[in-house]
Computed example of a mutant assay.
Amino acid sequence: MPTVPDSKLPRIAFAGTPEFAARALDALATFDCDIPLVLTQPDRPAGRGMKLMPSPVKQRALAHGLPVAQPETLKTPELRAPLLEAAPDLLVVVAYGLLLPRSVLDIPRLGCINIHASLLPRWRGAAPIHRAIEAGDVRTGITLMQMDEGLDTGPMLAERALDILPADTTGSLHDRLAECGARLLIDTLPALLAGRIQPVPQPAEGACYAAKISRGEAQLDFARPAGELERAIRAFDPFPGAVMTMQGVAIKLWRAQAIERTGEPGRIVEVSDRGVVIGCGSGCLRVTEMQKAGGKRLAVADFLRGHAFEAGQQAQLPVR
């Protein structure tokens, strides 16, 4: 068994990978505790040169002078050894990218807690921010939960709600939720460590799954209502970016508004500096920010200076 250092401070290990998790680690680094270990995903190829890049959590951990381990999996005793040797009282998990087996959940004395970007049980799973915007939800938030072996099914410790604003993209809502999650963690830790919080089981009703976003979803189907497509464009910003194909050329759509107008699905109704209006299954979509492959995101007036669109042109509709 590991030897626990003589310290009155709680020992809180951390597991996470993307920027959303890095903000929680920054907050934890300001809390009065020892952080004996940070777990994150292995370095991955990124960028045009496909060089190995450390995760945002690894970068932040090193900046704080914290020890880091990057196991591919936690299924073997050898790969779990660094966490066991760290002897944490608590493990905070935020978008780590690995399901924790029971053998890991049982290591910390106080168990493992997770910061999840939805009001559970709605939007369990990998893409809760995208799916909330895509579905037209008007509210989301952060749930702090005690982890079990299920996918975001553990009992809840605390939650904090946020409104989804009409102009929110996944990028803007991500940033607000990341800050909300970091604050909720720090606000909750004192009572949690003192044993003053009673976990509450998630409600049986209202559970739904936020499936991971695929690039295939990015291709817009203009047979759908304009309001749905407007939400999809916001949900897929910044990744993977909503796409239409016009005359064989893929063009990303970054900003648009659903408007009350009629038009054949996928056919351009109007072209002006105010926007490119495209017919949908119901209503039309006025697109005001676009991007061609290899180019920059441009306001429609600037985009049209280099890319001629005309009323009557037809966007390619996905094969159904």
Rank of each mutant, 00 (worst) to 15 (best):
Glu159Lys: 12
Glu159Ala: 15
Glu159Met: 15
Arg160Gln: 14
Ala161Ile: 13
Ala161Glu: 15
Ala161Gln: 14
Leu162Glu: 10
Asp163Cys: 10
Ile164Asp: 05
Ile164Glu: 02
Ile164Pro: 05
Leu165His: 14
Leu165Ala: 14
Pro166Ala: 07
Pro166Phe: 12
Ala167His: 14
Ala167Thr: 14
Asp168Met: 10
Thr169Trp: 03
Thr169Asp: 01
Thr170Asp: 00
Thr170Pro: 08
Ser172Gly: 03
Ser172Asn: 07
Leu173Trp: 07
Leu173Ala: 08
Leu173Gly: 00
Leu173Ser: 06
His174Arg: 12
Asp175His: 13
Leu177Trp: 00
Leu177Cys: 08
Ala178Phe: 00
Ala178Asn: 07
Ala178Lys: 04
Glu179Gln: 14
Glu179Phe: 13
Glu179Met: 12
Glu179Ile: 05
Cys180Pro: 00
Gly181Lys: 05
Gly181Arg: 03
Gly181Thr: 04
Ala182Val: 04
Leu184Ile: 09
Leu185Val: 08
Leu185His: 05
Leu185Arg: 04
Leu185Ile: 03
Ile186Leu: 10
Ile186Glu: 06
Ile186Asp: 07
Ile186Ala: 07
Ile186Phe: 03
Ile186His: 07
Ile186Asn: 03
Asp187Phe: 09
Thr188Ala: 03
Thr188Arg: 03
Pro190Lys: 00
Pro190Gly: 06
Pro190His: 09
Pro190Thr: 01
Ala191Phe: 10
Ala191His: 11
Leu192Phe: 10
Leu193Val: 11
Leu193Thr: 04
Leu193Ala: 10
Ala194Leu: 03
Ala194Ile: 10
Ala194Trp: 01
Ala194Arg: 00
Gly195Arg: 00
Arg196Cys: 01
Arg196Pro: 09
Arg196Asn: 05
Arg196Met: 12
Arg196Gln: 15
Ile197Ala: 09
Gln198Thr: 15
Gln198Ser: 10
Gln198His: 09
Gln198Tyr: 03
Pro199Trp: 02
Pro201Gly: 07
Pro201Glu: 07
Pro201Thr: 07
Pro201Gln: 01
Pro203Ala: 15
Pro203Phe: 14
Ala204Asp: 10
Ala204Thr: 10
Glu205Ala: 14
Glu205Phe: 15
Glu205Cys: 11
Gly206Leu: 13
Gly206Ala: 12
Gly206Ser: 09
Gly206Asp: 07
Gly206Val: 14
Gly206Tyr: 11
Cys208Phe: 08
Tyr209Thr: 01
Tyr209Ser: 09
Tyr209Cys: 04
Tyr209Ala: 00
Ala211Tyr: 02
Ala211Val: 02
Ala211Ser: 08
Ala211Pro: 06
Ala211Asp: 13
Lys212Gln: 11
Ile213Trp: 02
Ser214Thr: 11
Ser214Lys: 10
Ser214Gly: 05
Arg215Met: 13
Gly216Asp: 01
Glu217Tyr: 01
Glu217Leu: 04
